[in-house]
Write a protein that binds this DNA or RNA. Structure first.
Lengths: 168, 168
DNA sequence: CCATACTTTCAATATATTTTGAAAATTCAG
DNA sequence: CTGAATTTTCAAAATATATTGAAAGTATGG
């Protein structure tokens, strides 16, 4: 397969993949494009390669920068801004875990903690089921939280070396 | 907080949570409702508690059954079908991992394997970057795949006992 | 059987999300 | 400063996704 086609297919798949993970298709596509580009790109490059509008590029690039997946690059002698994606996939994974943990898991755990204290007799079947479910999810979430924390702090060598040996 | 309000809040949050994970809001809400219900519910129960149409309940319940998160229950002497959610949250997590792995990770790995074989000189900067990125993602995906496989097969005791000790 | 209770389907509709593009704001070389 | 290049914003339009509800399909007690 030719490089150009391979790139296009990678971008399309990464975009579709992203939509299953709460990430907007275009944001994932821009990310994919930058991941496979050897050089930083500017807004116009991205616009033409993905056939999307300037505003769209701008908004989604900002989002990628928020997530720290992409950085602005100054090219000497150039007026335009260029963008470069973090290429170390382990770092990418850690950045995503960190961000989603903060945005989703942490608030959920906070809420579950409150919901555990629902009024009513714990002997009541309905109350019991509610408390049991909520507590169960909370315990699970806390384990996941711990595990993800370790991952976020770990580096690839530690991770592959120790954890993956553990996982045979 | 009163049980009724607590339930509503749990359902709303679980629904919002689901949307970040590629699951449709209503499907997640129905799941949440069934998770905190001590008894199986029928379509009419769900319709009135969530204020949604019969067709909507029907479609999303089917989806939940596809994922094996919910099962049909026959209540003796009743004509209607009842639905019951798997309450063991570890089992729930394993079912979700299994399904998403099959639907998303496995196809992605297959594609990456193909894309690695792009034409062109590996000395070319563009080609090299593409192959490096794709290979890196593939290696990462394979590690994740192995790890998730172990999780899917594991039971809670093994998981908490061994893995979580590992994660301090 | 068949009348009725119940479930499923799906085209039409409503809602939510994404994208556009032109105007406003900003930056910077001269 | 000035004005051209560049970036940012955001209301309107386009697109995608979810929901409804009535009609068609199915199952069951009598």
């Amino acid at each position: 397969m030719k490089l150009t086609d391979a790139k296009l297919q990678f971008i399309a798949s990464w975009g579709a993949f992203g939509t299953h993970w709460g990430i907007n298709r275009t944001m994932a596509q821009i990310h994919a494009l930058l991941l496979v580009s050897a050089e930083p790109l500017n807004q116009d490059n991205i616009m033409e390669q993905l056939n999307i509008s300037r505003g769209n590029v701008n908004m989604n690039i900002r989002e990628l920068i928020d997530w720290a997946l992409v950085e602005r690059v100054i090219v000497p002698g150039e007026r335009k801004e260029y963008f470069n994606a973090e290429k170390d996939i382990w770092k990418v994974a850690r950045l995503i875990i960190k961000e989603r943990k903060k945005r989703e898991l942490d608030p959920m755990l906070k809420l579950l903690e409150q919901l555990k204290n629902v009024d009513g007799d714990k002997k009541d079947k309905q109350v019991k089921q509610f408390v049991d479910t909520v507590s169960g999810i909370k315990r699970f979430g806390e384990q996941a939280d711990k595990m993800l924390d370790v991952m976020v702090k770990a580096d690839e060598n530690w991770f592959v070396g120790s954890l993956m040996k553990f996982f045979k």
